[in-house]
Every structure is written in structure tokens, then in C-alpha cells.
Write a protein that binds this DNA or RNA. Sequence first.
DNA 1: ACCCGCGTACGACATTGTCAAACTCAGTTT
DNA 2: AAACTGAGTTTGACAATGTCGTACGCGGGT
Lengths: 254, 254
Amino acid sequence: MPGNIQSIERAAAILRLLSGRNRRLGVVDISGELGLPKGTVHGLLRTLQHVGFVEQDPETGKYRLGAALLHMGSSYLDGNELRTRALNWSDSLAARTQEAVRIGTLHDGQVLIVHHVFRPDDSYQTLDVGSLLPAHATALGKVLLAHHPYVAAELARKGMVSYTDQTICDLERLERELEHVRERGWAAEYGELSPSQVSLAAPIMDRRGLTVGAMAIFGPPERLLAARAPRGELLTHVREAAQSVSRELGAIPW
Amino acid sequence: MPGNIQSIERAAAILRLLSGRNRRLGVVDISGELGLPKGTVHGLLRTLQHVGFVEQDPETGKYRLGAALLHMGSSYLDGNELRTRALNWSDSLAARTQEAVRIGTLHDGQVLIVHHVFRPDDSYQTLDVGSLLPAHATALGKVLLAHHPYVAAELARKGMVSYTDQTICDLERLERELEHVRERGWAAEYGELSPSQVSLAAPIMDRRGLTVGAMAIFGPPERLLAARAPRGELLTHVREAAQSVSRELGAIPW
DNA sequence: ACCCGCGTACGACATTGTCAAACTCAGTTT
DNA sequence: AAACTGAGTTTGACAATGTCGTACGCGGGT
């Protein structure tokens, strides 16, 4: 791994900071957090501002993410094959199951939502495309982790946060769970991220047979479950939809 | 203009290229387009890849935007005050008018969509948050240009693209139109971007009285217009919604 | 088999970014 | 009022840093 460009890595670290703490940060906040001199951080920020990646609040002088990132994020979606191919299938999955659908992929040990179809009723729901969800507490994440053992190991090393009393925080339990997922070809999550939400997910594979994403429905347990287990017909729909997308991506339907 | 960091500017130029129409580019494409040596571009790309801003197609070796940008784009939205404050009002505007709502702000001489509420029916619509729309061919853009004369002048210098036979491409006509917009406090667009779409927009102002965004409804002419002019009640709804958001942003309601 | 074009690696050079210290300006405290 | 903090910003010398030309390896055309 021959040299990476220092200033770009630092700039990226700044952007990551700004996107993590969803708030505005000042020069000294950043310089403290990154262990860099004030002046250096300021120079980086000035350039980032010049290219539209950060903006500065003219009143407080603090910095926040810039508008250029929004456009680039949406450009990423346009070029994302997983999402493009999954568009139709996720719509019809939502229609068939009458539940909300999410498509996610692994990013930095978390689940990045690349597509989201609202539950087909008129309730207010917030779009969470671009959100990062914890892998060990979502059905999407379990499917993805099950086929990326290295990421799973990394996750275990860092420790798993507990979100509800159902969250799996124990490495061995998670490993057993992932083993099940690999055997069955689908994953479930029972209120492990949010107490009143459960989800069911299945893997999406590309032409090489790699699991490049996952597709899930999520909603209240009383609708997704029967006798504390996933309703069979919903599960079938999810698995078929994910398989259809896989086929579109060139996976051998074995 | 004290020194900007070269490598970051170049990296941003690469990302801008990748977010343009050409979704996948090779090292030589980029190096040709930017007039930089191959090796330099490769170094930049390697670092951008390392920080997750670009990804490389393992088959073709070509580069495309990376997933990290998606998450940062959505983080930008979370911190965007204009959008946050406008959430409720845009929902109710959509409900009242039964039309789709868009909120936009000026970015690089174009209109960046920061929020989008679907028309409240079950038709398939694609979310265009993050899209860049031409300013001279949208009601949103006209409102924004009307209060940013410098940007308007810049736009005129670069020339205006024609999208339909209704598109205003003449500088003088545009100037007259913007003058109207300033007087009336709202803008309309009659099939100037897409033949079967019209839109109505009103400005959103912040506490300093600056126009920081605009709010619009858009849809087919037969629903938005009466006798080739905007329906009065729709116009009122749009203007009131925009004014409500302005108030939330601290604008003096004069 | 050959060539062309691609993505990638290497290494010398000097351009470039880095860093610490100094500056400006508000808001607070003395 | 004056001094003091703590913010963001500017500066300029140094050398670490990124740049650029050249060279390598590989694959797909022909």
C-alpha cells in the first residue's frame, strides 16, 4: 500500500466527523478530535468549503456539511446497480406484503440503506435512504454479516451496542444466529433495534455469487409474525423478491 | 485567496466528473478530462477509494462514486435547517393542493432539490432529492434567481439550454420575467422544462431577509392552471406555505 | 503473436501542504 | 474601561509531501 494522499485522508476524516455528530463543529472542535493543529484544519476546511463540501455558518463561524455532498449522494444512487435493478422488485414486494421495504448494503461494518419503499398506506414515514443502521441489530445486517465473516469478526472486536432488551450483544449468540441465516437463507430480527419493529430479510447476490446486498420488509410484529415466527407467505415474498433481483444482477439461479 | 489545497481541489474535480453523466470513468478518461498525468490521477483515486468516496469496478477497473457519499448526503439533509423547518409545511401543502411539492436552493447556478413530497395519490413517482434542475427553466429557479442577481448574470454568461419550445433562453426575456417575480413575489413555469409539467413557486427567506430557498408545487397544466394562468387558490397555498417556513426561519413577517 | 490501451508501481525533484506562532475580533470578566 | 479569554483566521519558513515522467504487467482485440 504505497502512500495515500494525506490531505485527502484528513479532509475525509473531517467530513466523517461532520456527518457523524449531526451538528456543526468549529475549527478547534475538529482540531481537537483529530489531533491536528488549528491552522491545518482551517486550511482543509477552507478548501472543502471552496469545493462545496462544507459550508460555514456566517453567524457562528462553525462548519457543517455542504450541498455538493447531497448531489453526489444522489448521483451515487443513480449509478448503483443494486438499487437500480431492485427498484421494480421492491415496489412489488411492498405491494404484495403491504409492508415497508428496505434494501441495504454493507458499508464500514454497518448497513447502508440504498433504497426504501414506504408501507402502502397513508401513514407518515420518513425516508431513510442514506442512513446507516447497526448490522447486528437488523435483519438486513444479519444477512450481510452471514456472508461476510471478516466484517462480522471486526464487528465483534469493536463490540456490539444494545438498543433494546432483545438486541444480540453476545458474540457467540450472534455467531449461532449467523450460522442459522446461512443455512436457511434468510434472517429475522425481533425488536432488536426498536421494540415495536421486526424485520425479515433475504440476500441479494451478484453474478459471482457474492452477497452484495439484502432486501427486507419491516413493520410491527403483529403483522409480520404468527406464533412468534415469521409468517410463511411474507417470508416467501421477501425471498422471491431478493432472488429476482439477484437474477437481474446475473446470479446463477441454481 | 490564500492557498487552497491542490490535491483536495483535484479530488473534488474528480468526484464532480464522476457525478456528472459519465457514471463510470477510467483513469485515462479522467486524466484526459482534467489535463493531469495518469499517475497523479491514479494516486488521487486510490486515496478516494480508501476513504470510500469512490469504488472501483473489479471487472473493468473503472471508477464510480462510493457509498460514503450517500451517507454524507443524507447527513447533510439532517443538518439542513431549510429542509428541517419545511418538513411539516410541505406535507400540508401537498395535502391541501393535492400536488407534488419540491423545495430547492441555489447551488452552483442550479436548483438543488432538498425536499420532495409526492403527490398524494398512488401513482409511481421518483424521488428527486439531490437532483440539480436548471434554474432558468423552473419556477423554483426563477424565484431564486430573482433574488440573486449575480447568479442570474453568471447564468446568462454561460448560456441557457433549451428543454422545450417554451424554455426561456433569451436573456432579456428572462430578466423581464425575474422582474415580474420580484414584484409579485412568486414565479410560474409553463412547460419550460418538461412539456406536460408546470410549476408554481414562492420564496423562503431567513432572518436576514435573504432568499435562501423556494417552495413549489408542480403537476400537469390542466390541474394547476385555469385559463392559462395559475389557479388563484393554489398560488395562495404555495405562498402561505413558503411564508410559514420563512417565519420558522426567523424572517420578519413584515 | 503481436500490439495497443488500460490500470498500476516507482523514484527524483521541488512544489506543496504543514505547523506553530501571531493576529483579529467578540463576548466576558475584572 | 481595560484586560482576558477563546473563537476563527493569517502568515511564512521548512521539509515532508504529492507530483509527474517513465516503466511494468496484463488483458482484449486483431
